[in-house]
């Protein structure tokens, strides 16, 4: 394939559509942001710094973890390790979008990735499983999620008392339920179900025995390994040929 041709054209109309499609879930993100803003100020982070962190980092779980480590001084290496471990799932999420992202120019490719987060990625990945190429949701959906996260943080910083206990309303489960709905809405085959079982067991084992925050990556790679060794039988000949070619190349 020629390097200069980037076949994927982002459609502005679809970007707007995806912005509004993820607006409902973004309202919950506002509540999360408010919880973060409140936690940050309680730990002594100045209001503007909390808002700045949400704006530039834009990764909720890792921000909560960082705030947990906050004090008069912060150890740098543990901070880096925790932020990296929690956000390492982005590596896999980005990689899974590569078949689409390779068809946009590098500038746009990495621009889109600035807005990559769980919810918009889950929609895009699910659409891809169902045969639809949807990078617009990364941009449009990412924008609305990002704005919601900033606005939420701002609300929490200045009016934190409004939402003392988001857990009692079940708001801590929004993302979990959303991701589960996305997973179950995707294509299911025996191969996928085996991969999920392996992924679930591996993530539990990692959660139990490996260092904290490694379970997502361990589980996902274990599930991916099933896909690597067990190819879908569509066009068996082609698959066998590639498998043979790969074996040949390996020797």
């Amino acid at each position: 394939m020629s390097v200069a041709s980037y076949s994927y054209k982002l459609q502005p109309r679809k970007v707007r559509l995806e912005f509004f499609r993820l607006l409902p879930i973004s309202l919950f993100v506002v509540a999360f942001g408010a919880a973060f803003g409140l936690a940050a100020t309680q730990k002594g982070l100045p209001p503007l710094d909390a808002i700045l962190m949400s704006t530039t980092v834009f990764a909720g779980a890792s921000q909560f973890a960082a705030i947990d480590m906050w004090g008069n001084q912060v150890s740098v290496l543990p901070l880096i390790a925790v932020v990296f471990a929690i956000n390492s799932r982005h590596l896999l999420m980005g990689a899974s979008l590569y078949p689409m992202l390779k068809d946009v120019s590098p500038g746009r490719r990495y621009g889109l990735l600035l807005l990559l987060t769980d919810a918009n990625w889950a929609v895009s990945a699910q659409d891809y499983q169902n045969g639809k190429r949807n990078l617009e949701v990364i941009l449009g959906g990412g924008l609305v999620l990002w704005l919601a996260w900033i606005v939420g943080t701002w609300l929490g910083v200045y009016f934190g008392g409004l939402l003392q206990n988001p857990k009692s309303l079940g708001l801590d489960m929004v993302l979990g339920c959303f991701l589960l709905a996305m997973a179950l809405g995707g294509k299911k085959s025996p191969r996928v179900l085996v991969a999920w079982t392996v992924a679930g067991l591996a993530s539990l084992a990692a959660w139990q025995w490996l260092p904290p925050n490694t379970h997502v990556v361990v589980g996902a790679l274990a599930g991916g390994a099933i896909g690597f060794f067990w190819l879908e039988h569509q066009g068996t000949e082609a698959t066998d040929e590639t498998a043979a070619a790969e074996e040949g190349a390996a020797q």
């Binding site: 979990g176 991969a195 591996a202 959660w207 997502v216 589980g219 896909g227 690597f228 190819l231 698959t239």
Partner: peptide
Amino acid sequence: ISPRIESFINTMASSVLIAIIVPMAF
């Protein structure tokens, strides 16, 4: 991107979701 790599990517993608959710449930 060989078919094998693509198969890895696709299975890994939905496994990310499972690997987040299962420990969350437990």
